[in-house]
Simulated scan of single mutants.
Amino acid sequence: MTDVTPQPSDTPDAPHPSSGARVLAVANQKGGVGKTTTVASLGAALAQRGRHVLLVDLDPQASLTFSLGIDPEELDVSVREVLLGEKEASDAIVVTDEAVHLLPSTIELAEAEETLATRTGREQRLRVALEPVAGDYDWIIIDCPPSLGVLTAAALTAASDLLIPLQCETLAHRGVGQLLDTVHDVRTFTNPTLRILGVLPTAYDGRTKHARAVLEAITSSYGLAVVEPAIPRTVRFAEAPAYGQSILRTAASHRGAQAYRDVADTLLAS
């Protein structure tokens, strides 16, 4: 079985060795698990805690960019140009309404991924691109694409920590195993210090036996911790992107918003 034992941190909020920020990759190659919602909501929650936060949209679908009120079609510079070495990260970063900075994405990133596959140092390009701005932030959170290609490998190479959002359903078991195989390769070849924080249950209903059983099976099979609290199922998460804001702004008192605040506090204490 793949070794997925989390690696301990010497101090709280330990920075990535090559930056001044703690870099968190949020990844799961299965789509529709609340990955983008988690990135946007944690970013807003950490900003509310007084942290300087940069979110990186590494998904060609640009869902995070759209969710934070930025029209991808109106962007002249995005993460695509940064990864290809045509622009600096500082040239592409925009400020959102919730005091969170964003390195946005566009659909052109899909074509760039194919180009990157033939480039030297492709897994290191995001890490290198973020180094000049990392000192400006306490946290950098990367929204990975729902795949295990070059972009996800680059995100895991740049990251100090990995969080796996997970809907507790049958197919989740297979997806986690595939992701951990990729983590094993990244640790072996490009980022030996990558730490797995654990799985974050999303759209979770603890009243159902199936959800509890899947979560227990995954944690016992792979030795992964469960990041708490679980994120409840609610339509408020689907509504928030229409306003270009996170649930922490559109439904600040909702239990889903509070759950992400609590997860942010958990991360700050880890």
Rank of each mutant, 00 (worst) to 15 (best):
I142S: 00
S160Q: 15
V214P: 06
G175R: 01
L163Q: 07
T182V: 06
Q167V: 14
D205R: 14
V176Q: 09
V128S: 05
T202S: 11
A129M: 10
I107L: 07
C168R: 11
L130P: 02
R187F: 05
E216D: 14
T193D: 13
A154R: 10
T120C: 02
I142A: 01
L194R: 09
V133C: 08
T152P: 00
A154K: 10
T118L: 11
A110M: 03
A158M: 04
R119T: 00
A158H: 05
Q178L: 10
C144R: 04
V128R: 03
E216Q: 13
G206T: 13
H184T: 14
P201K: 13
P146L: 01
A159W: 00
A172Y: 13
E216I: 02
H173Q: 15
A134H: 08
L197R: 13
R187N: 10
L156Y: 03
V176W: 12
R174F: 12
V176K: 09
G177K: 12
H210R: 14
T208D: 13
A159S: 06
L148C: 01
Y137K: 09
A129I: 11
L179R: 02
T152L: 02
T170P: 06
E131C: 05
P104Y: 14
T202F: 11
R195V: 04
E169W: 07
I164H: 05
L156G: 08
L126Y: 01
L162S: 03
I140V: 06
V186Y: 00
L156I: 04
A153K: 01
D143C: 02
A154D: 04
L126V: 03
T190I: 08
I196Q: 05
T193V: 07
Q124R: 13
G135Q: 07
A134T: 08
V133D: 10
I196R: 14
P104I: 03
A159L: 01
Y204L: 11
P201N: 13
V214G: 05
P192K: 12
V183D: 07
T208K: 12
L151C: 04
Q167C: 08
A217P: 05
H184I: 07
A155H: 01
I164E: 04
R195H: 14
T120V: 12
L180R: 10
T157N: 01
F189Y: 15
T188D: 13
L148D: 00
A153Q: 03
L171D: 15
L156M: 07
A153N: 04
P146R: 04
L179V: 03
T157R: 00
T190W: 09
L116S: 02
D181C: 04
D185E: 12
